[in-house]
Simulated assay, not measured.
Amino acid sequence: MTTTKKRLPGTVLVQQESIEQATSLLEQLPEKPKEVWSLREAIELLQDSISTALDRGYSHEEIAALLADKNIKISVSSLKRYLASTKKDKSGTAGKTRRRRSTAVQKKAVTEAAAALPEVEPAASEEPAATPKKRGPRTSSTRSTTAAKTKSPRTSTKTKTTSTTSTRGRKKQA
């Protein structure tokens, strides 16, 4: 027994010949000229003219006003932003805000700079500079021990500091 697919009552069937005819018709259509552009596309098309006007001494505000007279309503901030984005697109750096050197280039530059400097031998009495220790986040226990270790210039060496806990926000107990 052969089974057939059941189709929904609203299903439309199209023959192969109709598909081929539609394909040839659509491929032969001439290109339709675009009549409406987005604001971003319009500024991209006008970018060279706007740059020329800026070079001639016109401000972004004046250019935005001139464009508004021609029914291209754009704010000054949008005009600046669109011009900056079209410049990035043309220069090929779209999406990048900064160009960073690779570490290999940096290492090479450092070694070349070090080689160019005259060598100075350290004196025998000089000690190499100590490298600073990395410090973690300070907690209340580190504050109290750090405060107890440091000497205040107001206290003499004879006076002892008895309080090692922080009294911030509360009264000292005697």
Score class of each variant (00 low, 15 high):
M1F: 13
M1N: 14
T2D: 03
T3W: 06
K6Q: 11
G10S: 15
V14D: 00
A22F: 08
T23L: 14
T23V: 11
E27G: 03
E27K: 13
L29T: 11
P30A: 08
K32I: 11
E35L: 13
V36Y: 06
R40C: 00
E44L: 07
E44F: 02
L45C: 11
L46N: 05
D48K: 10
I50G: 00
R56F: 11
S59C: 05
E61N: 07
I63K: 00
A64E: 01
A68R: 03
D69F: 01
N71Y: 13
K73G: 02
K73H: 15
K73L: 12
I74F: 07
V76D: 12
L79K: 03
L83D: 01
A84H: 11
A84P: 01
K87R: 15
K87L: 10
K88H: 13
S91I: 05
G95N: 08
K96C: 07
R98A: 11
R100V: 13
R100H: 14
R101F: 07
T103W: 14
A104N: 11
V105F: 04
Q106T: 15
K107E: 15
A109Y: 02
V110I: 12
E112A: 12
A114M: 15
A115H: 02
A116R: 12
A116C: 00
L117N: 02
L117S: 01
L117A: 09
P118V: 06
P122T: 04
A124Q: 14
S125L: 10
E126S: 09
T131K: 12
P132S: 03
R135Q: 09
R135C: 01
R138V: 01
T139A: 07
R143K: 09
S144N: 14
T145F: 00
T146K: 07
A148I: 03
R154H: 13
S156K: 14
K158D: 14
T162N: 14
S166I: 06
S166H: 04
T167A: 12
R168E: 11
G169F: 08
R170T: 14
K171S: 13
K172I: 09
Q173D: 09
Q173P: 08
Q173R: 08
A174V: 06
